[in-house]
Simulated scan of single mutants.
Amino acid sequence: MKNIAFYSCLILLPIVQVLRAQDISGSNLLLLLLLSVLFIYFAVQAAKEIIHRKVSISNVSIYTLLLLSTITLFAKYFGRTFWDYPSFLIIPSFIIFFIYFIRKKDEPVKLKAVTSVYMLFMVPLFLLIYGGALGDHVPSWWYQRYQVGESSAVELPYSFEYAEAENLSVQGFELRKQEKYEEAILVYKHALQIEPKNPRLYFDLSTCYAYTNQLGKAVSMLNTAIKLDSAFAPFYNNRGLLHYQLYQNKLAIRDYKAAIALDSTEGTYYANLALAQNDQGLISEACVSVQKATVLGTDVDNYDQLKKIINNCHQQKL
């Protein structure tokens, strides 16, 4: 039974990642559960090596690397920034280890299986961090947590005090259009040195951080933008999107409601609120929100999750 459970986890890992790309409800929670189970398994195996086998350095090292790799997968695929620096070492170390380990014929099948599956997850991260243009050959949904579908342009009511800062902002915008987000970040940071109190620059920086999977930093940029201007609804909506992507539904709901309080005519805010409420189990509230979004002209037919909420609402009425 233990072997069946172990191999089931390995088989489900890549399947769940594909489901996440399709934004299937529950897929994020399932991925978290699978990684948690594997983490516990590796920890137990490492403890057994130490307790019962008088410390097999080789096996303990393998299980320790798998433990660290599991934390890396969690941090990177769930947009957590606390593990950024260790990841720079763990990701290439794992790949080097895999190339060496997979060639050995006397290693347990279990370890070869799990390292092979983990390799599927490590390669996109390696290309993202180290691969430059090579990363373009990996579909972004495999490693990118920030999936917002079609985004609408936000008119930012902020001017520039200095021409140099404005020129840098334009340059950053062009880099963003080319999806050169890391380069755009550097440009926006330079502009911030000139105008450190311009909310527009923090908003644009947040967008770049989001698309480079640095969701914590993206939230931080919007926190600053809101401190500078607490009356601009799109700041709250975008921060809500980030909280939602980080599975912080209560914070997302709070932000969407704040955006609605500032601008109750924008249907997108209600649609986003409905998604967070639905994931939080607030089905009745989600029904009300999605209905308001529809009344305000949001085309819910373009969003599978919203259509599911509507179907659930209809079933509740029957």
Rank of each mutant, 00 (worst) to 15 (best):
I102S: 11
S69Q: 10
L35P: 03
A5E: 15
V148N: 13
A210S: 15
Y162A: 13
K105E: 15
A43F: 15
F232V: 00
G131R: 13
L242D: 03
V123K: 00
L30C: 09
F101W: 09
K76V: 04
F203E: 09
A75F: 05
C9Q: 08
N312D: 11
R103S: 14
S206D: 04
I310P: 04
L262F: 03
G135N: 15
S264T: 02
S152T: 14
Y41G: 02
M221Q: 13
L296C: 03
D23E: 15
Y256A: 03
P157F: 14
E266Y: 13
Y269G: 04
L13E: 01
P108V: 06
A218E: 01
G149E: 07
D255K: 07
E183P: 00
P199G: 06
I50G: 01
C9G: 00
D263Q: 08
L222Q: 06
S284M: 08
I309K: 02
G131M: 06
I11K: 11
G172C: 09
G297S: 01
V114P: 03
E164D: 13
L89E: 00
Q316I: 15
I40P: 05
F74K: 02
E195A: 07
V300H: 04
I194S: 06
N311T: 09
Q45M: 14
K2P: 06
L12I: 01
Q45D: 12
A163D: 12
T268I: 12
N237Y: 11
V114C: 05
P199L: 09
L201F: 05
E182N: 12
N237G: 07
N312I: 08
Q171I: 00
Y158P: 07
A293N: 03
N167W: 02
E49H: 10
K105T: 15
A133K: 13
L68I: 00
D23Q: 14
V123C: 11
K105P: 01
S61Q: 11
A261F: 04
F82N: 08
Y270K: 03
F203H: 14
R200D: 13
W83E: 02
L156E: 12
A165G: 07
P92R: 01
G131D: 05
T298E: 08
L215K: 04
I226L: 08
I260F: 06
L38Q: 12
L32N: 05
Y7M: 08
D23W: 11
F78G: 02
K177L: 12
K250F: 09
E174D: 14
A274L: 05
P199C: 07
